[in-house]
């Protein structure tokens, strides 16, 4: 077994294991961190396939960006900062049906695919070609995506920006806080 195979199987176990944790964990934060390992492991797979750029993009976008966003979302929207963030199973029936359909689909795809393995081509620089394609053939989609993302950012800023109720300095001495009333 060469090093590639070793890495492949090690990371395959990691990905599947973390994906399972992500799905079955009761703690939503644990799920989020498990997702990080799943996404990171996928990046390793890309790297093993000599798709360096895709691997790095996977890391940067999913782990560095989207995951941080998910964590933020989970941490900031739950009730209380330190309550154990629990998930529970809802919509059991629709979910089961949906999962079954997806499962059947995947099995179908797996069975119907003609699994011929192409030998890996080492050391091919994909980056230049990628860049050229983006700036020639796919110029329009590339730019449209950019504009779309920009709009999304502006929209998000508009939604998040809120006027704070003015806090006045030198207002009368504040009443005892909730903690002191409790005592």
């Amino acid at each position: 077994m060469d090093l590639f195979a070793l890495a492949f199987y090690a990371f395959a176990i990691l990905i599947v294991g973390c994906a399972a944790i992500m799905v079955f964990s009761k703690n939503i934060i644990h799920s989020a961190f498990a997702l990080m390992f799943t996404l990171g492991g996928l990046a390793v797979f890309y790297a093993l396939l000599y798709a360096g750029f895709v691997a790095v993009t996977q890391l940067l976008v999913y782990v560095g960006g989207i995951l941080v966003l998910i964590l933020f979302g989970v941490m900031l929207t739950t009730q209380g900062y330190f309550d154990k963030v629990q998930t529970r199973t809802v919509n059991l029936l629709p979910a089961t049906i949906f999962a079954a359909i997806i499962g059947i689909l995947l099995i179908f795809v797996y069975l119907s695919t003609d699994w011929t393995l192409n030998p890996l081509e080492d050391g091919e620089v994909t980056l230049t070609g990628l860049g050229e394609l983006l700036l020639t053939d796919f110029m329009l989609p590339f730019q449209v995506t950019g504009v779309l993302l920009l709009l999304a950012i502006i929209g998000a800023v508009l939604m998040a920006a809120r006027t704070r109720p003015p806090l006045q300095a030198s207002q009368p001495a504040p009443k005892a806080g909730p903690e002191s009333q409790k005592e």
Partner: peptide
């Protein structure tokens, strides 16, 4: 007084 608590000693 708006906040008639003890100040230096513990409240109890």
């Amino acid at each position: 007084h708006p906040d008639p608590r003890r100040i230096l000693c513990p409240d109890d």
